[in-house]
Simulated scan of single mutants.
Amino acid sequence: MDSLRELVLSLQQAGYLPEMFQYAFLTNALVAACIIGPLLGALGPLVVVKRLAFFSEAVGHGALTGVALGILLGEPATQPLAALFAFCVIFALLLHWIKSRTQIPYDALVGVFLSFAIALGAALLLYVAKKVNVHILENVLFGSILTVRDTDLLVMLMLAVVCVVLMLYSSNRALISSLAPDLARVRGINVRLYDYVFVLLIALVTVASVKIIGAILVGALLLIPATAARLISRSGREFFWYSILFATVSCLLGILLPMAGALPIPSGAAIVLIASLSFLFALLVRRWRSLA
């Protein structure tokens, strides 16, 4: 983490970044955006292809319950990492396990889990709010990148490394499993294993992003950049890289603009609003291409 901060500080001293990045908490915010933006952008295309957008929303709302449980179990109110990750991972795997063993429509099943997560999270948060500063809970709901700490950055970096390794060694098999599961089974690919691994990655990345984007909005950054990228992409490669580009730019601008005072709103809201602008931009580009 120190080497990343030194890199940002050297860029600031060289005049490439504003003077405000001499402060450590702002440097942490920028480093977090550079990690989580490409990570969410890289996973987004598979979320869109596998139609798991609603699933990521459910996991994000499950984070509310995880945070409340962590505080109730005695974890620091600003870092309830163990309960947060444990609850959301169990929540995601249980949801996918039930889906694979029942005939319930997936959107209906996710809706049941989402409703449960919101109800339980709301009940516990109302109880926890009497014991902690209410602004901590606002940060969980809407994100506050200025509260990012070294532990958060380390978790994001570890997840990014895991995702890169998985993409290097199994991206083609994962893609075939998503697009043509029957063909994948004929080729001897364990489709169920790849489904569980991908669901687990979504859960972990979603939870790691909660502090930046907020539990309510985190699913949007998996969905919107990838959807925008799909509108203007002519190939799978373009789909992947445009999604990363839109997600990363959204994260960077969503952090820089509130810091500069141009958008006096939480970082999570700013990031999602800018991602929505990228979707509008993609719509215009697609329309222009159809008329050309």
Rank of each mutant, 00 (worst) to 15 (best):
M1W: 13
R5N: 15
L9V: 05
L17D: 00
N28Q: 03
V31Q: 04
A42C: 08
L43E: 09
V47D: 09
F54P: 01
H61I: 00
L64N: 03
G70F: 00
Q79M: 11
L81R: 09
A83F: 14
F85L: 04
C88Q: 02
W97L: 12
D107T: 13
A108N: 13
V112P: 00
V112A: 15
F113A: 05
S115L: 12
A117V: 07
G121V: 04
A122M: 13
L125Q: 09
K131Y: 09
V132H: 05
N133S: 12
V134Y: 12
I136F: 09
L153R: 06
V155R: 04
M156F: 11
M158E: 08
V162I: 14
L166D: 05
M167R: 11
L175I: 06
L179K: 07
P181T: 12
L183D: 01
R185T: 11
G188R: 11
R192H: 11
R192V: 09
Y194K: 04
D195G: 14
V197H: 07
V199D: 03
L201P: 02
L201K: 04
L204Y: 02
V207W: 06
S209Q: 03
G214H: 10
G214A: 10
V218G: 06
I224G: 01
P225A: 11
T227Q: 01
F239P: 02
L245N: 00
L253P: 02
G254D: 13
G254V: 10
I274K: 00
A275D: 08
F281T: 10
